[in-house]
Design a protein around this nucleic acid. Structure first.
Lengths: 190, 190
DNA sequence: CGTCTATTTGAATGTACTCAAAAGCGGTGG
DNA sequence: CCACCGCTTTTGAGTACATTCAAATAGACG
């Protein structure tokens, strides 16, 4: 049950038995059906989610009512609107499921508690934020310099096998192109 | 001399006289000529820079030799390749001046020291990273949904007056368009 | 002042979009 | 289990946004 998330923690910090037991006691779990919204844009992001199974997306709906996916979160990824969560202010982004999904989550107050009880989690989430920062930075760079087709190939590398699990229109939204154009890109290589 | 950077710290943390004196003693200062590279891509990013006066850019040179600006850092901004700095590993990005620039900077070891001596700086730089994370996230979202012209108008808002200080080709590189096309956009509104 | 680089302008091209219609696929109810 | 409905994907034609190439003009710096 907890093995995936404990392995995730272990990527950046080492926990002893007591610390492991403590974090397990704070973690909450939820099974969520496909196409459910966990966080609505404008609401306060009260939880930080870890995907144990399934897939989330983080997206924004623009003034024309069009949704733009900024990130996919399959197994072993964390999802949060960092600005909303850290300031407990209204969210710019929404978070929703693309498949039936199992998440672990920590509320804001639980995480604050965890920081006090096991300070090394400060380090863990700092590294997580830095990695995300870096990932987005590079994504901007590659968006500046690459064509839609190149970005599509990069998506395939970054999210192996995910393409088979989610709708094309979700991928198109992530790439910043229309579903029609993505279909053409995919068509011409076979 | 230190007033701009102290005001910057004060945006997120409060320092007493002793703490202020301590951080002043750790901060190093450098005046750098226009068009100088402070960090070369591939080198290890050993310092985190604060722009006291002038303007930096953070950029990457792609495989075709083309430079892509990911960020401008005028007065009151911080500049660093966060991945390189935090891991003391080779940098993906380069950092250079667009004007004669005055920077304060902290080396990696100085910052580690500062974290030990004045732990609230952990908080300060965590917030800085979160803000950057958020900024880049939103930039990706807006790049997905907006035309070059809309992004240009957004650039003007985000960096007031900066347009007059730096070359058009730098702005075009930031927007992800050619200098030729930026010239056309600018031409048609007058 | 002269040289080098940046910017402007114009023409032709390519990349990606819109609109429209057809085909495919998934879920639901009979 | 099959038929139907709604949504997603494909395909095609025409269009708009942005690029490349080229040449002329303007600016910056020694």
């Amino acid at each position: 049950m907890f093995d995936v998330i404990l392995a995730n923690f272990a990527m950046h910090i080492s926990l002893n038995a007591a610390e492991t037991a403590h974090v397990k006691s704070l973690l909450q779990h939820k099974a969520v059906k496909k196409n459910t919204v966990l966080l609505h844009s404008g609401d306060i992001c009260r939880n930080i989610y870890f995907v144990n199974k399934g897939c989330l997306r983080i997206f924004n709906t623009d003034s024309n009512g069009e949704e733009h996916n900024i990130s996919f979160c399959p197994e072993n990824w964390w999802a949060v609107d960092i600005s909303s969560f850290s300031g407990q202010s209204p969210a710019f982004y929404a978070i929703g499921t693309l498949e039936d999904t199992d998440v672990f989550y920590l509320s804001y107050s639980m995480l604050e508690q965890l920081y006090v009880d096991v300070p090394k989690f400060e380090r863990f989430f700092r590294i997580l934020t830095q990695n995300g920062f870096n990932l987005y930075q590079r994504r901007i760079t590659s968006n500046l310099s690459k064509t839609a087709e190149e970005r599509y190939l990069q998506f395939q590398k970054q999210y192996p096998k995910l393409e088979q699990r989610i709708a094309q229109k979700q991928i198109a939204s992530y790439l910043g192109i229309t579903p029609v154009f993505l279909s053409m890109i995919r068509g011409k290589k076979s």
